[in-house]
Write a protein that binds this DNA or RNA. Structure first.
Length: 702
DNA sequence: GTAGGGTTAG
């Protein structure tokens, strides 16, 4: 019996227990441990690991750790590795508590080493993963497949493809690891993250064993590179398609501005009997946002609510819905979603602020920004794009300037080229064109198309062909195919009466083969059916009725003071001809059909592919008053809400004294945020002060 | 251990 126990005890304990004083040395010739005792300990270890696995907070884990120490298991790699992994998962800084626990173990096994390496691979500093790997090898411990997945994760995180290649070589050198499925998958992931699609594809092609994860990784990579054809081809070849793979395709189409195909794919996915989760929903919501039609918006919202991932269930779905309803023209619906959300984060706030800004509700946008600052959510760069845009559309130049000047100091968000574009837009629209130009020319980074485009747009509004020429020259370099830039410059010349320049530019456009996009508008008629109208075209089945209705409408509006704004036509033609052209702009046709086909009291929603012209804008204003209808026009820039003879983009309707009804001023906001930042900084310093700095970075794999 | 997600101005 004794002999049997002796035999079993040696078999039952392979490399689990390290040899050193302080922990039982399992050498059957020197120390005899009864089998029952070993079994008890093994059971205890199993139990501790499972308790750790179920722990959800630091307090619970610390209790288990205390128990580990009481039972004398601080050298047991199996348990300690789990402890380290759980701590890292809970975002406890790896180089503090977990590292300390690791250092207490005299002989770490590969799994314990890997737990720590993985911790750094998730949290950073990523180079510490490599340092640890090298130390592990020097101390004679061989890696396991987990080690490589962790290392590839680290390389992917810092986009270090050279290091990734070295580790790739090691997987082949050490043997056996290159053919491991998970190692292969993380390797593909690393190459794709670093932007080496070909290398990822090569690993994929050479893999002996692939699973749906390997395929999906590549599908996503192709989708992100804009190559939906290759993505689709892979998807067709994929033997067993799961929900994630389907979602990758739906999202891919949505991200590549192909919303109709995204919807088609989603329908196919449902036909295939696939489940829908929050990630799928986000993809499809984004597609509906691009379509801008309420019919689809309501349809997808129903699906979201039925599947249990509605705005109250998921903060991500909620934020996507806010964005979708804003883009579909239903800012009220977006508000309702926002108010009904249980949890809100920076995405929810930013989407709502941008929604308000887009719809000309600067007041609401600023108020929401203020409310956000009272919560624990901190603004990010997108939030500032929203807030600055709101200031721009409300003509709040002084407030905008102060926010921009204090972004970095008070909020910790450094201004990017996009924020400079907002400022150039703001100054430009306010008529301060010289200052806007100076800002564009002196900004610390290379100005992007947005910056010069904003300036060019402002030059058209304020009829300044000289500065327009400068902005346009930059734009012609940055966006050689951007037809809109040529049109804007053309319009600016026309407004200034420089017809020679107009014809010179038109000739240049012809030479370059650039064609003006025909103006096109869509209007939602009954039951959400969408009707399309092109400028000057009378192809709609009811076009005779529409033409008559439009003429009647024009007469009524003229009686109320509407006069065609002839300068909106940039052709050197007779006034009569100009009037005729203006009257056939697509949005006017859409409006006439909207009035014919919807009931009194219904809001008329029109979408347009290019910017609404000044004349149509005045026409809509007047129509909203005379016909007593709410009219919403979404052009390629923003939303216009016409109500009782005014538009939401009319600056004079917004507050402009730096103070709103809440009774706060901008300096108060800045002060408030500064105190938050200081407090955060203090907390951070006090935590970091206790933690040892990790080793130097920059070591390569040896 | 591995794959899919939301907000950006002219």
């Amino acid at each position: 019996m004794v002999a049997l126990c002796r035999k079993l005890s040696t078999i039952a304990t392979p490399n689990i227990f390290p040899r050193k004083q302080g922990y039982p040395q399992i050498n059957s010739t020197q120390i005899f441990i009864p089998f029952s005792q070993l079994q008890r300990r093994r059971l205890l270890e199993e139990r501790l690991v499972s308790v750790l696995h179920g722990s959800t907070n630091l307090v619970q884990i610390k209790q288990v750790h205390a128990h580990i120490l009481r039972k004398g298991l601080e050298q047991c790699c199996y348990v300690i590795a789990k402890l380290v992994r759980m701590l890292a998962q809970l975002d406890v800084p790896v180089h503090s508590y977990p590292r300390l626990v690791f250092q207490q173990v005299n002989y770490p096994n590969p799994f314990l080493w890997t737990a720590l390496i993985r911790g750094y691979a998730v949290q950073g500093p990523f180079s510490e993963s490599i340092v640890l790997y090298n130390r592990m090898r020097r101390e004679g411990t061989g890696p396991v497949s987990f080690t490589f997945t962790a290392l590839f994760k680290a390389c992917g995180a810092v986009l270090d493809v050279d290091l990734g290649r070295q580790i790739h070589a090691q997987t082949i050198l050490i043997g056996g690891f290159a053919s491991d499925l998970h190692v292969g998958n993380t390797m593909i992931n690393m190459y794709l993250k670093c932007g080496f699609l070909d290398c990822g594809r090569k690993v994929f092609d050479e893999m002996g064993q692939r699973d749906v994860v390997s395929w999906t990784e590549l599908i996503v990579a192709y989708a992100k590179s804009g190559d939906m054809e290759s993505a689709g081809e892979l998807f067709r070849e994929l033997p067993v398609k799961d929900m994630v793979a389907w979602t990758a395709m739906v999202t891919g189409y949505a991200q590549n501005a192909r919303p109709k195909e995204a919807l088609e794919f989603f329908e196919r996915m449902q036909d295939a009997g696939m489940e829908t989760d929050d990630v799928t929903l986000v993809g499809i919501i984004s597609a509906c946002a691009q379509l801008g039609a309420n019919k689809y918006a309501n349809w997808v919202r129903d699906i979201a609510e039925k599947s249990g991932f509605g705005p109250t269930g998921s903060v991500v779905v909620g934020s996507a819905l806010i964005d979708m309803y804003s883009k579909c023209g239903s800012i009220e619906e977006a508000c309702k979603i926002f108010e009904g959300m249980k949890e809100r984060n920076v995405f929810s706030y930013s989407s709502m602020i941008l929604g308000f800004a887009m719809h000309g509700r600067a007041h609401a946008a600023m108020q929401l920004f203020r409310e956000m600052l009272k919560t624990e959510t901190r603004p990010n760069r997108v939030t500032f794009v929203g807030v600055l845009t709101a200031c721009t559309h409300a003509g709040l130049v002084e407030q905008g300037r102060q926010l921009f000047a204090n972004m970095e100091k008070c909020f910790g968000v450094a201004p990017s080229a996009d924020h400079y574009a907002c400022m150039v837009d703001m100054l430009g629209r306010a008529g301060q064109l010289e200052e806007a130009l100076e800002l564009a020319e002196t900004m610390p980074m290379q100005p992007n198309g947005g910056v010069w485009g904003a300036l060019l747009g402002a030059c058209r509004i304020h009829k300044n062909p000289e500065i327009a020429q400068i902005a346009a020259n930059h734009l012609f370099q940055l966006e050689p195919d951007g037809i809109g830039n040529y049109i804007l410059l053309c319009n600016t010349y026309a407004l200034a009466g420089r017809w020679d320049d107009v014809s010179r530019l038109r000739k240049l456009m012809r030479e370059k083969g650039l064609k003006k996009n025909p103006g096109c508008s869509w209007v939602e008629a009954k039951k959400g059916v969408i009707h399309e109208f092109y400028a000057g075209q009378m192809t709609h089945p009811e076009s005779i009725k529409i033409k008559q209705a439009l003429e009647d409408l024009q007469d009524r509006l003229k009686a109320h003071g509407y006069q065609p704004i002839l300068s909106s036509v940039t052709y050197d033609i007779s006034d009569e001809e100009k009037k005729r052209l203006l009257m056939h702009h697509s949005e006017k046709l859409a409006l006439a059909y909207g009035l014919l086909s919807t009931d009194a009291g219904c809001t008329i929603k029109i979408m347009k592919n290019i910017r609404i012209c000044e004349d149509c804008h005045a026409f809509m204003c007047s129509a909203s008053q005379v016909m007593e209808r709410e009219i919403v026009v979404r052009d390629n820039m923003r939303f216009h809400h016409f109500h009782d003879g005014a538009c939401s983009c009319d600056k004079s309707k917004c507050f402009d004294d730096g103070r709103n009804e809440m009774g706060w001023t901008l300096p108060e906001i800045l002060q408030l945020e500064m105190s938050v930042r200081l407090r955060e900084k203090k907390i951070k310093n006090s935590v970091l002060g206790k933690i040892r700095e990790p080793n130097q970075i920059g070591e390569s794999v040896g």
